[in-house]
């Protein structure tokens, strides 16, 4: 059977030492809600290929779970739990789309352990925190022994389960500049709680004199990565956000998508339901701006 190593470093210096491990698969562990089921499944099977040892590096001892709000931007530490973020005042008041997403992610007992950084680094196309973060213009801070770099979330994902983070590079935090737009998130799952999205959507709308000045739309679970729908965005600029305009914009959303059939839904259904989820998110975001 495969060998496993476990380390719980108390400093980033030590972490980066441990992250350099020849001939090992290095995995960072935060909440564990994605990684542990994968490890358990692997351990319960007769191994087909000889896999290199896995070095598990636990991030819980590094104090990377703080949320700071400097007035202009909110910075969320990668290991902040989803429950902690739900209870956070800055997230609730300044990042309503993210707050709505958190409320619909899994259930209480998963949210108590799962982290925002884990949701990002797991890089699932269905990750519910990603569409809101994308429309809110989030930026990721990556660190490694070589230094740190910032990557826009829109450039972060390269495919299902894949990101631009290099081996040994750690997601430290994600920074959001909420601006003055109103934002909202809508999720369609197969049940109300504890479910993965069939399709999810987030929108962020800025209005001037009642007309749409700028808008960002993101749809998840309908392409290899969460996608922005620029065609629909452009169609809305200068218009009033109402039932008609969001329906027209919704029809353009499908062009940005490349949905597949999987255990949760069919490509056919996803393509038909995505415009509706986008329309609902847009109306809610615009309403939030007016209110």
């Amino acid at each position: 059977m495969r060998e496993y190593e476990y380390h719980a470093p108390l400093s980033l210096e030590r972490l980066f030492e441990l992250a350099e491990a020849e001939g090992m698969e290095v995995r960072f562990l935060a909440g564990g809600t994605d990684l542990m089921p994968r490890i358990s499944a692997e351990r319960n099977q007769i191994p087909r290929d000889r896999k290199p040892p896995m070095r598990i590096i636990y991030l819980g001892g590094l104090g990377l779970d703080e949320v700071t709000d400097d007035g202009e931007s909110v910075t969320i530490g990668a290991t902040a739990s989803l429950s902690a973020l739900l209870d956070n005042g800055a997230v609730r008041t300044k990042l309503p789309a993210l707050h709505e997403a958190l409320r619909e992610m899994a259930g209480v007992s998963v949210r108590n352990t799962a982290t925002i950084g884990g949701n990002i680094m797991n890089a699932s196309p269905a990750a519910d925190s990603v569409p809101p973060l994308l429309v809110l213009g989030a930026e990721c801070l990556l660190r490694s022994a070589a230094g740190e770099r910032r990557v826009a979330l829109s450039e972060f994902f390269t495919g299902p389960g894949k990101t631009v983070a290099r081996p040994g590079e750690l997601l430290v935090s994600v920074t959001v500049k909420p601006g003055r737009g109103g934002s909202a998130f809508r999720k369609l799952g197969r049940r109300k709680a504890e479910t993965l999205s069939v399709v999810n959507a987030a929108a962020c709308v800025e209005l001037r004199d009642g007309l749409c000045e700028s808008v960002r739309i993101a749809v998840g679970s309908a392409a290899p990565v969460v996608v922005r729908c620029t065609g629909a965005e452009q169609a809305l600029v200068g218009k009033k956000i109402d039932e008609n305009s969001v329906r027209e914009a919704g029809a353009l959303v499908v062009k940005a998508l490349s949905p597949i059939d999987d255990i949760r839904s069919s490509a056919w259904y996803r393509a038909r339901v995505a415009p509706t989820m986008v329309a609902r998110a847009l109306l809610a975001a615009a309403e939030r701006k007016r209110g």
Partner: peptide
């Protein structure tokens, strides 16, 4: 906090 113990690595 209520947690699902199958998703928690014991040593953590």
């Amino acid at each position: 906090n209520a947690v699902k113990s199958c998703t928690v690595l014991a040593l953590t």
